[in-house]
Each structure stands twice: as C-alpha cells, then as structure tokens.
C-alpha cells in the first residue's frame, strides 16, 4: 500500500490530470512542477493509448499530440524521472491495461516504485480482473485505484471493500469531458461507499469550474479535474505551466475556503 490515503487526512484533495508528452517532454515536466506549486495534492499523469475508450475528444486529442511528439512508455518514465528532480508531489498514472500488460506488470510496477508513482488508475480493469495485478502492485507499494460509477449498483460493496489508495468516483455515465450537470445521486453514492470503507473518495469526470469543484468537495474527499486542464495545455501550449499554476490555485482556494465555512 502507498501513502495516498494519508494525503486525504487533513484537507480536501485536488488531483489535476495531464497527458504525458503533451505537447512535449519539457513542457510536461514543467506542468507537473507548476501543478505542484499551485497546490495540487496528487498529480495524475496520463500515459497515452491509441484507443482510449473511456476518454472523450479533449483527452483523445491530447493523446494524439503526445504521439506526434513520439511518446513511448519509456518516455513517460523519463518525464517522471525529470520531474522528480523538481518536485516530490505524489503521482499516479492513468493508462489502459494493455500498456501495463505489454511492459510487463512486475517491470512496470517496479518502475513506479523507483520513481515514486503511488497509484495506477486503469479504466479498463474492472474488479473481476484486479487479481491480475493488485497482489503484485501491493508488493511494490503501488495502489490500483478502483473506479465506482453511477451504474455500479450492487457492485459498490465489493469494490469499496477491496479498495486501497483512494476510490475514483465517476460523476456521471459515459466518457471523460466537461459537463454542466452530474449524476443526481452522487451524495448517496459516496455515502454508500463510506458505509463499506474508510478509503477516501475523489470525484472526477466533467468537473471544470471552481464552483463545481467546491460542490463536489462537499460530497467527497477530493476532486479530479482532467479535460479542463488538458484543454488549458492545448490552448497555452508551451506557456501552459503559468496558466496551470494559476488555475490550480483557484481550484485549491475554492476547495478549501468553501469547505472551512
């Protein structure tokens, strides 16, 4: 088990997401550092996949930009190694199972441990197949972050009970991308998860404004923002670090002040 759960002890947690090597190596390293400086508690780094079926257009485009830059799994590890010289912010990877499978589960997890990557979010690894990697991940102090969605229903209990690190609560059905409304039963969903586990929860999918983030932080222990941040990277390109730092500060302020009231 990693130290991810500890991070949620004292405050509402902000987890921004960027895609590795979008638009290039150096900018990604600077973006990670800028997110950390802006107040991000955990940075979620996407390893691009050719066919990201859980992702909407914004993240698909980011993956394409990274492929344009020539990204490989090896490049992503090198980006993390470079970022580790600047920041010790907790990191998790988001990628699809085939990337990890082809690298070799043990080899990939060992690399994570060496680089201080604490968790993996793998959207196409459901509970039923977690044994393929979870016991091995535990050996390397890496958490496999499970996802729970508005459609999980009777599956919530078993997923929550087996969770470690944190639980990624998906705000709505469908794929990633900015949204203006979320699943109406989110509070109940998180409350049900809490019945089964003390593992913290973070809500993601579709959140893009500070106000939405504050609303979500009333429900869960943390907030994940992906597409909105990736969109900033797309627009600002190599100037993204400054913009990301500012955006992160805004979100963190909204998360923490609103909650303390």
């Amino acid at each position: 088990m990693s130290n991810l759960a500890q991070i949620f002890k004292n405050q509402k947690v902000f987890i921004p997401f960027i895609v590795a090597d979008d638009p290039d190596f150096e900018t990604t390293v600077k973006n990670i550092t800028a997110l950390a400086k802006g107040g991000a508690d955990i940075v979620e780094l996407g390893i691009p996949f050719s066919d990201p079926v859980a992702d909407g257009a914004v993240i698909q485009q980011a993956d394409l930009r990274a492929f344009e830059a020539g990204v490989t799994t090896q490049t992503v590890f090198e980006i993390v190694a470079a970022a580790r010289k600047e920041t010790d912010v907790p990191l998790v990877f988001l990628t699809y199972l085939n990337i990890v499978f082809k690298y070799g589960y043990a080899r990939f997890l060992k690399k994570c441990q060496q680089l201080g990557v604490s968790g993996l979010v793998i959207p196409d690894l459901p509970y039923e197949n977690r044994d393929e990697i979870v016991p091995l991940a535990a050996k390397y102090d890496v958490d496999i972050i499970p996802l729970i969605t508005p459609t999980s229903g009777q599956r919530i209990q078993k997923i929550a009970k087996a969770a470690s690190g944190f639980i990624y609560v998906v705000s709505s059905v469908g794929i990633t991308g900015e949204r203006d409304s979320f699943f109406a039963g989110l509070s109940n969903l998180v409350a049900e998860i809490k019945e089964y586990t003390d593992v913290p929860t973070a809500i993601g999918f579709g959140i893009h404004t500070a106000q939405q983030a504050a609303e979500m932080a009333k429900i869960a222990d943390g907030v994940i923002i992906g597409s909105a941040i990736v969109d900033i990277v797309a627009k600002e390109k190599t100037n993204a670090p400054q913009a990301l730092e500012k955006y992160t500060q805004e979100i963190c302020t909204a998360l923490r002040t609103k909650v303390e009231q």
Binding site: A54, P123, D124, P126, N129, P146, P150, T151, S152, R155
Partner: peptide, 12 residues
C-alpha cells in the same frame, strides 16, 4: 477472453 471494460459497463 475475459472482461476488460470500464466499470460503467460492468453492471450492464
């Protein structure tokens, strides 16, 4: 074989 799909589809 197996089932390697997002959690959103598992109940279905």
């Amino acid at each position: 074989g197996g089932q390697y799909v997002p959690e959103t589809l598992m109940t279905e």
